[in-house]
Design a protein around this nucleic acid. Structure first.
Lengths: 196, 196
DNA sequence: GCGACCAGTTGGTCCGGGTCAAGCGCACCG
DNA sequence: CGGTGCGCTTGACCCGGACCAACTGGTCGC
């Protein structure tokens, strides 16, 4: 599935329930006047879908090229009834997503623009960099989101995201190639910028 | 348990797992420099506690007087293993909390101060007003939080919260008695102020 | 090659909300 | 009683980030 494709419509009934095999899925919510907020990013091998509810209050879109393994909703709910192990795994993922959502609430509510952008880079580094090791000081990765999507994730404007990235580059905390590829030599400096 | 008491320490091991019988519990996260964000409010009959993890990344405090029914962590995890029904109930609550957290992320990231305060009042009205009926136009309730706590919930300062409440009062959207008791005559007008 | 378009950057201006400070009302205490 | 402290409000000022606009570089179709 190519980038930008819509997986779950906002008011449509959510039929599917999928397993991400590769790629990044963004979950967004939109206010009636068009303001948008990304409320979650999901990476392989997460589930996508909201069991036990007909209607999803959010939109799931592929942020990068994504490959999925999808089931109809009835199938998955039947499987959940029969297999407590699967339900347990779903509970574990949901608890993890809740922890992440709450972490992000702190970022949205209490951090400055610079801290938000640094926090975002750390988040992506930990998920994306194939050989990222928290103890090693460095990371290299491609941003899976455009500036506009980063802005929607951080509750900022695209201009502010751009300026903060430029500032991190000017301060030699990161390097940027082709607008997408980020190199962080010293992740501790970046973490410091994120307001811990 | 009286208001302000701490239920779960930040770095301490979370031993307990409780059921709220009455009152309001606030879940907060704090940055190293003291900035604070309330990341969740829990009302009866929610569970409080983070199963399957030794360490909780947040602090749970009583916001009002609270009565609890507590179990040691081992007990609850044993019960969860033996009773899939209980685990299912926990999954349902966790999914609901995740939905709420994501709704709140939109409020934190994309709404103005006035919309945030209106959204907060609607949230409290739906949980607290004993005879609140969404179709009836009005609601009366006591705020379970101080201005400082509301500010920490909304990612604002106490002054801004105060000013926005004063403005809602001046515009006859709400009435305020004793700084705590709120009357909303026409909840639709308040909902309009919340940016839907 | 050339123009159109899109993602991103950069500059300038403005305002919402933060910050600082003073003051009010009320409960509690000596 | 007056003093003290806390929760809250109000006013004045300021700044971070939104908004508006111009520009750059890369990609695509012709």
């Amino acid at each position: 599935m190519t980038s930008g494709a819509e997986l779950i419509g906002d008011t449509e009934t959510v039929d599917g329930f999928s397993n991400i095999l590769s790629g990044v899925v963004k979950l967004t919510k939109t206010l009636s006047d068009g303001r948008e907020q990304i409320v979650g990013l999901q990476f392989a091998p997460d589930f996508v879908g909201r069991p036990f509810r007909e209607e999803s209050a959010l939109t799931a879109q592929a942020a990068t090229d994504v490959s999925l393994c999808s089931f109809p909703r009835a199938t998955i709910e039947g499987m959940l009834k029969r297999s407590p192990g699967l339900e347990h795994r779903l509970l574990e993922q949901t608890l993890r997503e809740l922890d992440e959502a709450r972490d992000w609430m702190v970022t949205l509510g209490r951090k400055t623009a610079g801290e938000k952008v640094a926090s975002f880079l750390i988040l992506i580094a930990t998920y994306i960099d194939p050989e990222f090791d928290p103890r090693s000081g460095s990371a290299v990765f491609d941003l899976p989101l455009t500036r506009a999507e980063i802005a929607d994730f951080l509750g900022l404007t695209i201009e502010t995201v751009s300026r903060q990235l430029t500032k991190l580059k000017a301060d030699k905390v990161i390097e940027i190639e082709n607008n997408r590829r980020i190199t962080v030599e010293d992740i501790e400096r970046l973490r410091f910028r994120a307001g811990i």
